[in-house]
Design a binder for these strands. Structure first.
Lengths: 243, 243
DNA sequence: CGAATACTTGAGTGGGGTCAACGCAAGTGG
DNA sequence: CCACTTGCGTTGACCCCACTCAAGTATTCG
């Protein structure tokens, strides 16, 4: 088991990997880095020369508007490469930062290009990964445009739980999700006060438990219904969660 | 000038093309098709074997929620390949349809794969194109989460105008944009009634003119400000519009 | 034991929603 | 050529989800 095991697990969740490909992947050169909470990995406007492969913790991508608002665009878990796009888009249109202390493997663009040249199958997988990233954005747009705050919140929780389950980061019906209400608010496009009340609704209705950075699903079916959640967009190889 | 000229123009707006690459591109085999207004090119759940290269008209991608709402995810103009993602994501998570009568070139996945194998530079461009697609989704998320309805509408208009300008589809400060208020509403996540009032605001403030399917920008600076619009996310090679 | 940081709760407000009617042009067909 | 339909845009009345402001209450931590 290599140090890049989280990546292998992630790719295996969306594609079939041969032993040879696993071998090649585990030999990609990288540099470890530890990010503190709130610390940026890359910021809007920068022109990165590396990609970040997340090894632990929780990260988020966000953008600050000119009026000072913060919109969170995505949350990331171990195995993700949140800034894979920088491989072909020179300039970052948003920032990437850690929610809690997070380890990343920094991989040079040149090394990824070489990997892709040498092993086109892995290239397709990475392309696929970036297309799934886009599919997640689409799901967020649908949630923001069509659902009320409880639906949006439910959708986010369904998505995070499903993604974590796909790479083995859940235990039963629970997973770590150390997000504050302010962070949830900035992701959902509602105020923090309203997230608070919405969370209370979900707790009162016995759909979830959420405290101390840990999420427990109490009623998956009801949550899925509220969120109009269909995991198909995550394009997982093995049918996801059935709690 | 080949029949696939719109694609060449589009790729040239985001990357440098060699004569050889232009040559290769103009020889990709395809089948023409004409879509009527409202007609679907591909629908959610399908597993397409072709990609659609748009040659004329106006298209949109959308998703219907279980409660019957329609969220429009993107609008597309000639030169776009709105379902490029289907190359690496088997199952469509949303639908693609025509707003008005639209010509498309249907290109088989195998032929694209072969093109990419033979000319890796073009492969990178297509990957880049799909990453820009994702960047547009991010911009929509920011608009939906952080802007009020006039800001969102202004953002959409800025984006469409900038994209059309980049491929030579504007005349001065005008362009064709045959969208109904209902379509705008479903894209912005607000009601059609409210789009009507918001459009009136923008007209009254002399920012735009919008009638008969034609958009004219009267005050670009004000529109950009209202939308908090920064075209950087479109990753265009040549700096866009300065009206 | 202050001083953060996160979470709660209440009161008042407003953006945008819904419902419903009406205007107006462009077909279409008798 | 007029009656009818159909699609799109417009307007008004009323309402509610979610926002802001503001003042709490835990917890955690130097």
């Amino acid at each position: 088991m290599s140090e890049l095991d989280p990546l292998i697990r992630r790719l295996q969740s969306i594609a079939r990997l041969t032993d040879a490909q696993r071998e090649v992947l585990s030999k990609v050169p990288f540099r470890r880095a530890l990010l503190q909470p709130e610390q940026h990995a890359v910021s809007e406007g920068e022109r990165p020369t590396h990609c970040c492969l997340q090894l632990s913790g929780l990260m988020f991508r966000h953008k600050i508007t000119s009026s000072g608002g913060r919109q969170i665009l995505a949350f990331h878990i171990p195995g993700d490469i949140p800034d894979l796009q920088s491989l072909h888009l020179e300039t970052m249109d948003h920032s990437l930062a850690a929610v809690v202390a997070t380890e990343v493997a920094l991989i040079r663009h040149e090394d990824i290009e070489e990997l892709v040249d040498r092993s086109p199958g892995i290239g397709s997988m990475l392309w696929r990964e970036s297309l799934i990233d886009a599919a997640v954005f689409r799901a967020w747009i649908v949630a923001m445009g069509q659902l009320d705050s409880s639906g949006r919140l439910a959708h986010l929780l369904c998505e995070m739980f499903t993604r974590m389950a796909a790479v083995g980061l859940t235990e039963g019906r629970s997973c770590n999700l150390p997000l504050t209400q302010v962070e949830l608010a900035d992701a959902l496009g509602v105020s923090a006060v309203h997230v608070n009340r919405t969370l209370q609704d979900l707790r009162r209705s016995k759909l979830i438990q959420f405290e101390g950075g840990r999420l427990t699903i109490l009623d998956w079916a009801a949550l899925v219904h509220l969120a109009d959640f269909n995991p198909q967009y995550l394009q997982l190889r093995t049918p996801p969660v059935a709690l």
